[in-house]
């Protein structure tokens, strides 16, 4: 991985405020949030995107990292539980350690739950961005440990689901251990006479 930005000891934070179409912008005044972000310490660039997670949005992040020599990125969009991997990958593509990216959750934790309160939601969004920027200032690059995966799958349950999963995995060449608490596999389906919609026998 080529590190293209120069890290000269000075914090340079870029904030990317996502409209998420109208998902965020419909409730939160994203322009005001972006303007507020620009006033925060060490923030050197603020960009508003329609959809930050889409290719154009990600490209804007990558370009800004390169052009503005950003060494921290704050994405103010949705929950990190959904798109943290996306944006970590994105900043990595621009030569930044993925742990130098931080997210502010303006969607699940803000616009979607305060639809009738534009003012309150905008105030909250500003704070969430300020919180993410404050945290970003202290972020440090981290290295992930690569661990080999043991080449065997455990399937718990020998009903129709477990049998099917085990067979598919075995067909794909994997070693499978199938565990069933009863003496026979088959599960509840084996007790059924005929099944819908085919009206044929279950075993």
């Amino acid at each position: 991985m080529t590190t293209t930005h120069s890290n000269d000891g000075e914090l340079r934070i870029g904030v990317f405020v996502c409209d998420c179409g109208l998902n965020i912008a419909g409730t939160v005044d994203c322009a005001a949030v972006a303007a507020h972000a620009a006033t925060l310490p060490d923030v050197v660039c603020v960009v508003r995107n329609k959809y930050t997670c889409a290719d154009p949005g990600q490209n804007e992040i990558k370009n800004a990292v390169r052009e503005q020599r950003l060494n921290r990125v704050v994405v103010a969009s949705c929950t990190p539980r959904q798109h943290e991997p996306t944006f970590r990958q994105c900043v990595l593509g621009a030569g930044l350690n993925p742990y130098l990216m931080e997210m502010a959750n303006l969607r699940e934790h803000c616009s979607w739950v305060h639809p009738g309160d534009r003012e309150g939601a905008t105030r909250k969004a500003k704070d969430l961005v300020a919180s993410a920027v404050a945290r970003a200032r202290f972020l440090q690059p981290q290295e992930e440990l690569a661990v080999p995966v043991t080449k065997r799958v455990l399937v718990i349950g020998g009903g129709v689901t477990g049998i099917e999963a085990a067979l598919q995995l075995a067909d794909a060449g994997h070693k499978v251990t199938l565990v069933e608490k009863q003496a026979s596999i088959g599960g509840i389906m084996a007790q059924l006479d005929k099944n819908y919609p085919t009206m044929d026998c279950s075993i």
Binding site: V149, T150, K151, R152, V153, L154, V155, I156, G157, G159, T161, G162, A165, A166, L169, T177, G187, I188
Partner: peptide, 12 residues
């Protein structure tokens, strides 16, 4: 048994 993944299909 050491395994790398687990499929939970314990039914109902």
């Amino acid at each position: 048994r050491e395994v790398g993944a687990v499929v939970v299909a314990i039914g109902l």
